[in-house]
Simulated scan of single mutants.
Amino acid sequence: MKQLSILITLLCSLTQAAFGQTDSQCTRLTANDYKIVFQLAVDYPDLQKYYHTDTDTTRQNIVFVTHDFESINHGQLRGVIKFGRQVSIITEQKIKDRNIKSYFVIVSLLCNTNSIYLKLSYPIEGLMISYLFENINNKLVITSAELVEI
């Protein structure tokens, strides 16, 4: 059922994207909206076992990379904390330059009026994570999530 829900939301979002509505919806997200979405994403209970911070302390530095750096920037993630550290977002080039092995790739971020679809990959663990956030009673919550080992 979760997969069907995510698939339907994705198809609706992609349909909206084809008509230019998704970008305008995502630009309406506030810095606080981004903070909530990314905080919920990194804190998602099923994801915790993949961090392996007990055996590799460098994984305590949660890093996001995006190909669309103009849409999502570090300022929007200010205040997102994991393992007592500020989460950061950097360019793909900086990932290479700094030889960072553990990072999340923001594959897609699709928005509509009351929901947000976020897809991340976590290459070091071979994971693809899909989240559906909905605005319920003026609060963003995860209504569906799926982790797939690829």
Rank of each mutant, 00 (worst) to 15 (best):
V42R: 05
Y122S: 07
Q25S: 14
G126D: 09
Q93P: 02
V37D: 04
A18D: 12
G79V: 08
L110S: 06
D68N: 14
R85A: 08
Q16I: 00
C26R: 00
I81E: 11
I6E: 00
G126M: 06
N114R: 04
Q16V: 00
S144V: 11
D43N: 14
S88Y: 06
T58F: 09
T55W: 05
Q48E: 15
T113Q: 14
M1W: 11
A145V: 09
C26I: 00
E92T: 11
L11S: 12
D33C: 04
I81D: 11
S24G: 05
L40F: 01
A18P: 01
I136Y: 13
S5V: 15
Q39R: 08
T66E: 03
V107M: 06
L120K: 03
S13H: 13
T53C: 05
L47V: 05
K94Y: 06
V141S: 05
I8E: 15
I72Y: 00
E70M: 03
L109S: 02
I129M: 05
C12T: 06
K35C: 03
T58Y: 08
F83Y: 14
I150D: 14
L11H: 12
D54R: 06
L120R: 03
E92Q: 13
I72L: 00
T53H: 07
V42S: 05
I95S: 03
H74S: 13
K94G: 03
Q93A: 14
Y103D: 04
K82Y: 07
I90P: 02
N61Y: 12
A145T: 10
T66V: 09
N99M: 11
S71C: 09
Q16K: 14
M128C: 09
R98H: 09
K119A: 11
K49R: 15
I142A: 02
Y103K: 03
E70D: 15
K35D: 04
K35L: 08
G79T: 07
K139D: 15
H74A: 13
N32V: 09
D68Y: 13
K2C: 12
Q25V: 01
G20T: 05
F19E: 12
R78S: 11
D46N: 12
L11A: 10
D54V: 07
D97K: 13
R28P: 05
S71L: 14
D97T: 13
I81Y: 11
D68S: 12
G126E: 08
I90D: 01
I81K: 13
V80D: 01
T55H: 08
Y34E: 01
Y131I: 01
S88I: 15
V141K: 10
L127A: 05
P45N: 07
R98S: 11
Y117K: 01
N32T: 10
Y51A: 03
D46W: 08
M128G: 12
T15P: 07
N73G: 02
H52S: 09
I8G: 09
D23A: 08
T66K: 01
F133P: 01
S121G: 06
F83A: 03
F83M: 02
L109H: 05
I124E: 11
V105M: 06
K49Q: 15
S71R: 15
I136E: 15
I124R: 08
G75V: 00
K49S: 11
S5A: 15
I81A: 04
Y103W: 10
L47Y: 15
R85E: 07
I100K: 04
F38A: 03
K96I: 13
V80M: 00
E134M: 02
L29I: 01
D56H: 08
L14M: 10
G84A: 03
N61I: 02
T58M: 08
